[in-house]
Amino acid sequence: MSEIIISFIEFLKQFSYFGILLSLCFEFVPAEVVLPLAGFWVYQGDFNYYLVVLAGTVGGTIGPLTLYALGRYGGRPMVLKYGKYFLVSQKQIDASDKFFDKYGSGVAFFARFMPVVRTAISLPCGMAKMNVWKFSIYTFMAMLPITAFYVYLGYKLGPHYKEAEEIFNSYALPLALIIIAGIITVFTYKYVNKRKKSQSI
C-alpha cells in the first residue's frame, strides 16, 4: 500500500510545491510518508526547504478538515461507516474519542504529536462541533513544527528518509511540550507586563 502512495506522491511532484500541498489534502495519504519524501527532494536539490514546509503546513491544515466535516455533519454512525476509506481504524476513532473527552478542544493541537490519534482526532473535534476556525488555527500551529521537523529529517537522512517516522515518534512528545512551554511563557510574560502597566497608571 505504501508503494502505491509513494507512486501517487511522485506523480504529484510534477506540480511542484502545489503538488506537495495537494498530496496532504488527501487524508488517506499520510503526512509521515509525504514529508520525509519531500525532505529527500530538498536533499536532491529539487526543492527549497522553507517553501516545502509552507506548502506542507497549508496542505496539512486543509486535509484534516475533511475528517472534521465527516464528524460534524455525519456524526458517529457515518464516521464508523466511512472512516476506513480515510485509513482510520475503529481503534484510532475510540482512542481519539477518549483523548478528546479527557483534554477538550486543545487536542486539535496536542494530539497531532501522538502516533495513534494524530489522524483520527479531527473526527471527535467535528462531532463536538468545535469552531472550525479554532480547529484550523490549532491544526496549523501543530502542523508547522511537525512539517518542519519531518522535512528536516528527510533532508538529513537523504536516501534513508523512510526512517524518519520512527525518529519523529521518539521526539514528538518532547517537541510538543517545548512548544506548549514556549506559548505559556510568552502569554505569561505579556500578562505580567500588562499587569505592571495597569498598576503604574
Score class of each variant (00 low, 15 high):
102 K>C: 09
103 Y>W: 09
104 G>W: 01
105 S>G: 03
105 S>Q: 04
107 V>M: 06
107 V>Q: 02
108 A>R: 07
109 F>C: 14
109 F>K: 11
109 F>E: 12
110 F>E: 07
110 F>P: 03
110 F>V: 07
111 A>Q: 01
112 R>I: 03
113 F>E: 14
113 F>V: 12
113 F>Y: 14
115 P>A: 05
115 P>R: 00
116 V>A: 06
117 V>L: 06
118 R>S: 10
119 T>E: 00
120 A>D: 10
120 A>R: 07
121 I>L: 12
122 S>A: 13
123 L>F: 00
123 L>N: 02
123 L>K: 03
124 P>Q: 10
124 P>Y: 03
125 C>F: 00
126 G>H: 02
126 G>C: 07
127 M>A: 11
129 K>E: 08
129 K>F: 02
130 M>I: 12
130 M>R: 13
131 N>L: 02
132 V>W: 09
132 V>N: 06
133 W>D: 01
133 W>A: 08
134 K>Q: 12
134 K>A: 12
135 F>K: 06
135 F>H: 09
137 I>Y: 08
139 T>G: 04
140 F>T: 07
141 M>T: 13
142 A>T: 09
143 M>Y: 09
143 M>Q: 13
143 M>E: 15
143 M>I: 11
144 L>V: 09
144 L>Y: 13
145 P>N: 14
145 P>I: 15
146 I>E: 15
147 T>H: 02
147 T>I: 04
149 F>I: 15
150 Y>N: 08
152 Y>M: 12
154 G>H: 03
154 G>N: 06
154 G>A: 08
155 Y>M: 06
155 Y>Q: 08
156 K>M: 13
156 K>G: 02
157 L>V: 05
158 G>Q: 01
158 G>S: 04
159 P>S: 02
160 H>E: 13
160 H>W: 04
161 Y>W: 10
162 K>D: 14
163 E>Y: 11
163 E>W: 09
163 E>M: 13
164 A>E: 12
165 E>P: 01
167 I>G: 12
168 F>H: 06
168 F>D: 10
168 F>C: 10
169 N>C: 01
169 N>L: 06
170 S>W: 11
